[in-house]
């Protein structure tokens, strides 16, 4: 039996996960998302990441970004390398794509602020 903390929402439920052959049973979750999280955590842990990309503007040197969908946990630093290689020159808006389908993981890196288009 393994104990994991659910990170889906601020409740932070303590999940008890039991693996019986191919079968995974989860207890301690207050909702369905907790069960999904536990199963994913035992098979292929996924995470979201948030960071910044460089811009060409002195007054706003960085633009905040995040991935549009969770990525495999073991790819976090590889995705960070991609994010750190980018310099944004267009006045992107919130939600605009910065890197399409990053490393073929099925998630885009998107802008999370209108700061460049508004200022």
């Amino acid at each position: 039996m393994k104990e994991i903390i659910c990170i889906v929402c601020p409740n932070g439920c303590t999940l008890n996960v039991e693996k019986n052959g191919g079968e995974i049973t989860v207890t301690g979750n207050k909702c369905k998302r907790g069960e999904e999280f536990a199963v994913s955590e035992m098979t292929r842990p996924m995470r979201t990441i948030c960071s910044t990309v460089k811009t060409d503007r002195a007054d706003i040197p960085v633009l905040p970004v995040r991935v549009s969908a969770d990525i495999p946990k073991e790819k976090i630093f590889a995705v960070m390398d991609e994010i750190n290689a980018v310099t944004v020159t267009a006045p992107l808006k919130r939600g605009d794509t910065v890197i399409k389908n990053v490393l073929g993981l099925g998630a885009d890196v998107i802008a999370t602020s209108d700061i460049l288009s508004r200022n």
């Binding site: 960071s51 905040p64 995040r66 602020s113």
Partner: peptide, 22 residues
């Protein structure tokens, strides 16, 4: 606060700080 997790109660979405504020 560029990390995500804002707005789960209000918007039922995991937003970053700038997205929530904007």
């Amino acid at each position: 606060c560029i990390h995500d997790g804002f707005g789960l109660v209000r918007f039922e979405e995991k937003l970053s700080g700038p997205e929530y504020a904007e």
